[in-house]
Design a protein around this nucleic acid. Structure first.
Length: 399
DNA sequence: CGTCCACAGGAATGACGGGCGG
DNA sequence: CCGCCCGTCATTCCTGTGGACG
């Protein structure tokens, strides 16, 4: 018990945070530095809702962590507050298409947003859409549909859903719907049908990545409210900003680094957050991401990862689809499983690539065919942690 | 400059589990 | 409870293709 007492004592005395929520990426501060321009433009676009007319649909572009979601929520919050003063209700359906990446779940979410419960499966998509339309038009209101990361939805299921959404207004007599599409993919509109493109892209907003100096500024402001005074070593914020700037100016990453570095310092009972903590935080973030993603994967994907790992032992630059698939079949049989077809495995490889677990790039070897070079892009240690608990898997790593 | 390898990746179709209305 | 319809995962079958080789 003495040990525990010491630990608690240490943690209590090393009181590094004032309010760590301020340092979370989903916290919306009162001011969003370096996004004034975007805030103003978005507010201009949305303002007509207050006068009872339909705001234009908007497309918002920008790489991850450039404040797209934060600015949207911020402006919607302001518009809503303004509307309340005048006794208007503003409905907002905020849908993260990465989590809800089927047409069905998107509409199901829309229903939830207006207070209608729907079963998570069983009904047809069109039936749910019909219900949505009939309910939404019962009252007089404005509805903002925010589709965060729409690109994932469209790439998976096509732009059918978007087309229907843009046409809903025609069927409604009282409610007005405007759509805010947020995307990380700058070439997103290429995937869209011309009709959808023109009606959704009535307005466009581009969020450039933050540079290191801007990130530093953002971190400094958040740190003021988040950390106790004088708990940050000189170079800490600079380092977080620099590391995140390398990752395409991702403010979310920068904040995570800073917050987790602080947590590590606190847990270690240190009085100050140092650059060592930041480095450690970076490793931890990577590990958490990998472990979380891999652990929840279906069995065959795990076997595929295992095969890729074994292959990387033999040659460091990965293998072609053919080699990977052969090995995968062997491993699957060792586990007493019928292997999936190559077609399916090809999709699984693409999935791993998208998640950043593996690297896959198509190469042409002339008349010796066209193939994909696949290699794992995660460390052995992280892989071991991720496969912990899967019988017989973790033991196969490293030999 | 056409051929031809070794796949990529689209389309159609089945197996499965889950909700709904009667 | 049953038959029906749905979304999801997986299979089968298929056409398309970059570029070194001959």
């Amino acid at each position: 018990m003495k040990d525990l007492d010491d630990l608690f004592e240490k943690v209590m005395s090393a009181n590094i945070f004032v309010n760590r929520d301020i340092l979370r990426p989903d916290f919306i501060p009162d001011d969003l530095p370096h996004r004034e321009e975007q805030i103003r433009k978005l507010a201009e676009i949305m303002a007509p809702a207050l006068k009872g007319s339909r705001p234009s649909n908007v497309f918002i572009y920008g790489v991850p962590g450039t404040g797209k979601t934060a600015v949207t929520k911020y402006v919607l919050g302001k518009v809503d507050a303004e509307g309340r003063k005048k006794g208007q209700t503003l409905n907002v359906a905020f849908i993260n298409c990465k989590q809800d990446d089927t047409n069905y779940r998107v509409i199901a979410d829309l229903c939830e947003a207006i207070g209608e419960r729907v079963p998570f499966t069983g009904l047809s998509t069109s039936e749910v859409l019909r219900r949505f339309i009939s309910i939404i038009d019962r009252s007089d209101r404005s509805l903002f549909v925010v589709l965060d990361e729409v690109d994932t939805l469209v790439k998976k299921t096509g732009d059918d859903m978007l087309y229907k959404l843009t046409r809903i207004n025609d069927k409604l007599s009282r409610t007005r719907i405007s759509i805010v599409g947020i995307t990380n993919d700058l070439k997103f509109t290429e995937y869209l049908d011309a009709r959808v493109r023109s009606s959704l892209g009535e307005e466009e907003l581009i969020f450039p990545p933050y540079n290191a100096a801007e990130l530093e500024d953002i971190l400094t402001r958040r740190a003021q409210g988040g950390f106790q005074r004088g708990r940050l070593d000189g170079g800490v914020i600079k380092l977080c900003a620099a590391l995140a700037a390398k990752e395409h100016g991702d403010a979310r990453r920068a904040l995570d680094l800073l917050r987790i570095a602080g947590e590590l310092a606190e847990r270690g009972g240190d009085q100050k957050v140092s650059e060592v903590h930041v480095r450690k935080a970076q490793r931890e973030i990577e590990k958490d991401r990998v472990v979380e993603v891999v652990r929840t994967m279906p069995l065959h994907s795990k076997i595929l990862i295992l095969s890729l790992h074994i292959l990387s032992r033999q040659s460091s630059k990965g293998g072609t689809t053919g080699e990977v698939y052969d090995l995968y079949c062997d491993v699957a049989k060792k586990f007493g499983l019928e292997p999936l077809t190559q077609r399916r495995v090809s999709d699984l490889i693409n999935e791993l690539d998208m998640l950043g677990i593996a690297n896959a790039r198509v190469v042409s070897k002339g008349r010796y065919g066209r193939t994909k070079l696949v290699a794992l892009s995660i460390s052995d240690r992280n892989l071991r942690d991720a496969l912990q608990g899967d019988a017989g898997m973790s033991s196969m790593i490293g030999k």
